[in-house]
Design a protein around this nucleic acid. Structure first.
Lengths: 347, 347
DNA sequence: TTGTATGCGTTATCAA
DNA sequence: TTGATAACGCATACAA
């Protein structure tokens, strides 16, 4: 049930620049200057204005300001989901750094849907974002055209390709996964499987799979027979996929997971199936989220510096919007965290 | 290193309503209507306008629209941090529901800093948020005054107090924790300790502590001698606090943690100290994040329906801004998940 | 150092 | 059903 808004609360109208100006006996221009470039106005009048501002509880109207100034000091970010520690963590660092430089962050999440991402990008541009942080390269090229036409710079994060002409900060998902896979093959595994996120529309997932295949070819393993199950990122789906993949013939002795969440699911399923890890089967993840080192057994995975990526992305983007330059892409280093979940296969 | 923006990319100016109007041979008013209330314009002209829109790649300028329309279809949320699964999850659900109703979400995080939260609230209001989602009750009352003056409705989440006059959706942190504590005392524990988040400026933390004290008094346990360590929400600080609290005399046989993250830290520290849980010491958490059931031993904790809270909060807030009503607060039910980490004390 | 005047891109009121 | 036109609240070029 709801009750009517009390009529005792009149919509006392919100003070505007003009109100402040009137009260301080100056022009609106002067008030504006006090707020935006205080050093351009003499102290005496500035104090008078500031007093008026406080007495009235004035706060500038953002829309009006954006409309007039043609910039917003706002950076937009479109991420697949907030409900994943890696993005949450990276974006938190991203925002902290932006805040330090007087920028505000607008986040939108696309739920891993390409169409939604496109819409969010257009929305953020329309809202006057001065710059955009995007995850991965995969999207309609027309979008980058769109952004270029409106001259809103965009930075790609969580991915890195040497030969791309759009600036990025990230790492090579392919190489990182290949490194991990090489280690697995060195342990002696020949029968492997992979649980991946949907590879259509997710270039990071695709690259990680490619990394496994690359290393497999190097180890002269028949890649075509490798079972690959694509599913969504959740513990539950990781469990299902693992049960399914362990039914394959020959049964894998090592299972690569596209990220730690899936790997945790796999670990859990293994436990339920009475399989011990790594004795019966090795399991690896990707991301090194907190839970990876706490799992039982602890998870072998690829460590990604999410917070550093977020922080540095902010710096790059701020440069892009303030200096109107386009930075060199930066490749971050990942490294492998070898933990108990990976061991040699049973002989 | 950076290189200059290519001069080959002229700042092709962004199309406006007027451009569309000109191309479609109608007035700007008609174009505006086509976009906002299409049924008010006859099909023939509407098609003409829409064609022009597409050909030009027109996208409305949000700031201008907000300035003229005096609302934004935007809801703001200020949360303590994104880097905590419970908020990330709740906010994700919140956003999904908002999206379903054509609203956009603006998130800001305050890093658990009261001053920053205040600033963020003012910022979101200035940006024209039609409504605000806030976490917990604790804040400068002037802020609610400020919001009322600008008539932007606010909803409190993750907390619930019967006698408050500001609408909320959440649960009683105090009662939930008291329920858990009663269970612990029923098991026979008399020597207890608590690891809490900072209780100043965080009413949820304060209420959880109060819950433990309440149940302790009921069980005739001397509350004043109970060791309470306040720290930040992280696994690392949970570990430190646990080591410290286990040095207390008498040594606790059960340790309450203010949330699951701290509890995971405590679990980890216990393992390092060679203490087995729950034989040597019982540990409890709060929130029931995913990791709680996966920990070894699995964590006894209070389950909170974060996603449901987020989803319903969105519905309430949309009602508040569209119908201008203030809803009854809703109290969500929490329940205890009894898992291995809690057992009877050694006798 | 300050003020005047204009424009930013929409929406909405009122007439036609 | 459509068109003129006046707000909306602020920033800024230019003048004083």
């Amino acid at each position: 049930m709801t009750r009517e808004r009390s009529p005792l609360t009149p919509e006392s109208s919100v003070p505007t620049l003009a109100d402040v100006a009137r009260r301080a006996n100056v022009s609106t221009a002067t008030v504006s200057r006090c707020l935006n470039s205080p050093d351009q106005v003499i102290e005496r009048t500035r104090n008078r204005v500031m007093d008026a501002v406080n007495e009235l509880g004035y706060a500038p109207n953002f829309s009006a300001r954006a409309l007039a100034a043609r910039h917003t000091n706002t950076i937009g970010a479109v991420i697949p989901t907030m409900d994943n520690a890696i993005f949450a963590r990276g974006i938190q660092a991203f925002q902290e750094e932006l805040g330090r430089h007087g920028f505000t962050l607008l986040v939108a999440s696309s739920s891993y849907k390409e169409a939604l991402e496109e819409e969010q990008i257009r929305t953020l541009a329309a809202r006057g974002a001065d710059g955009l942080l995007l995850i991965g390269y995969h999207r309609n090229p027309a979008l980058h055209e769109f952004l270029r036409a409106r001259s809103v710079p965009a930075l790609v994060a969580w991915a890195y390709e040497v030969d791309s002409d759009i600036p990025a900060i990230g790492f090579s998902n392919r190489n990182a996964m290949a490194d991990l896979a090489r280690l697995v093959f060195e342990k002696g595994h020949r029968d492997i499987g992979m649980i991946s996120a949907d590879t259509k529309g997710n270039d990071r997932a695709r690259d990680r799979l490619a990394g496994v295949r690359l290393a497999a070819r190097e180890a002269a393993i028949d890649v075509d027979r490798m079972p690959v199950i694509e599913t969504t990122y959740s513990i539950e789906s990781g469990m299902q996929a693992f049960r399914q993949i362990m039914g394959w013939t020959p049964r894998p002795t090592a299972v690569f997971c596209g990220n730690d969440v899936l790997a945790i699911g796999a670990l859990k399923a293994a436990k339920e199936m009475g399989l011990s890890v790594p004795e019966d089967v090795s399991i690896t993840g990707f991301d090194d989220i907190e839970i990876a080192s706490l799992a039982e057994p602890a998870l072998t995975t690829v460590h990604v510096p999410h917070r550093e990526m977020g922080r540095r992305a902010a710096g790059m983007l701020i440069d892009m919007v303030t200096k109107r330059t386009v930075p060199e892409s930066v490749e971050l280093q990942t490294d492998i965290r070898l933990r108990r979940s990976l061991g040699p296969p049973k002989t």
